[in-house]
Design a protein around this nucleic acid. Structure first.
Ligand SMILES: [Mn+2]
Ligand SMILES: [Mn+2]
Ligand SMILES: [Zn+2]
Ligand SMILES: [Zn+2]
Lengths: 156, 156
DNA sequence: CCAAAATTGATAATGATTATTAATTCTAAT
DNA sequence: ATTAGAATTAATAATCATTATCAATTTTGG
């Protein structure tokens, strides 16, 4: 069961690593197809599974129906934007804050690990929001911003 | 669109409220069928959807493939046990700790809300574990305890 | 009781993911 | 470079959870 180095696997990994958007398997399939037009969706799924099983990528089980994948294997956390639906990485000080606060929580509860998904306006939407003076309570009524990529996710 | 009071809906809600196990739709279906043998799975799904849309129950999107439902609508948090796979509520001091620590996190990150799933040994497994002196690092190798209800969930 | 509205059980359809398989590609050893 | 065996692929079928459809039944408010 030695992992061989196929063109398909290489391209899938390369394309995923170019992104910071946490694509679903079919989103990545569309990108990979631009370089390998005859690749099949099954191959993308199979390789994403293999790559995450060997810790070369992350498989994210965020809320919503589809799995998402991440070429960045460093420990980090994610925020889903209620405006555009995008999943973005927490950066710098925000990251450190999660670490600090959640480690404290693990210690006090005796738990081993956690899965955390924050919900907050992403940097891209923050800009627009401040200029367009929008109703801040349309959290459950997305589809407001231009490049709205929100899928039909219902949050708890 | 007034919600009528059907026997099916009443039984579904009653049975769900008896539990603290966060069943999936089909698990609840099996229970409800003991009282209403001719009910269909579609009816269970339809009512769970309606009941959660009207805030009479909670729909949980925990890791794993299936949705889970909760008759307890009070604000509270969940822990998945790496030994038995069960989802249990955090209680008392643990609850308060999550509140405190995560509110701090929201304030510092400017996020609106969060979805948190802790992973930690549940009270039931804790008892067994202390007596049976088991390898504490079989986190990714469940199927160790007797009443093992672990589904095939892969954690991040 | 009665008409309109809501719901049900049965079943089909959907969407995401996984399994199957014959054909192709990779690999490592000659 | 050749070659046998292992790994992988594209195509496709199958699976699993969930949602949609719809004629028949139940509930509701008058
Ligand atoms: Mn990421
Ligand atoms: Mn609960
Ligand atoms: Zn956004
Ligand atoms: Zn347990």
């Amino acid at each position: 069961m030695k992992m061989s180095n196929t063109q398909q696997r290489r391209v899938i990994l390369e394309e995923l690593r170019k992104l910071d958007t946490h694509p679903t398997a079919d989103e990545l399939y569309d990108l990979v197809r631009q370089r390998l037009p005859q690749i099949s969706l099954g191959t993308v799924y199979r390789n994403l599974e293999l790559l995450s099983a060997t810790s070369q990528i992350l498989k994210l089980q965020l809320t919503g129906t589809q799995k998402r994948f991440d070429g960045n294997t460093a420990l980090h956390y994610h925020r889903r934007c209620p405006c555009c639906g995008r999943v973005s990485d927490l950066k710098g000080e925000e990251m450190a804050e999660v670490e600090r606060v959640l480690n404290e929580l693990l210690r006090k509860t005796g738990c081993r690990s956690y899965t955390l998904e924050l919900c907050g306006v992403c940097p891209a939407c923050r800009k627009q929001q401040s200029s367009s003076r929008e109703n801040p309570e349309n959290i459950n009524n997305p589809k407001s911003h231009q490049e709205n990529k929100n899928d039909g996710i219902e949050r708890q």
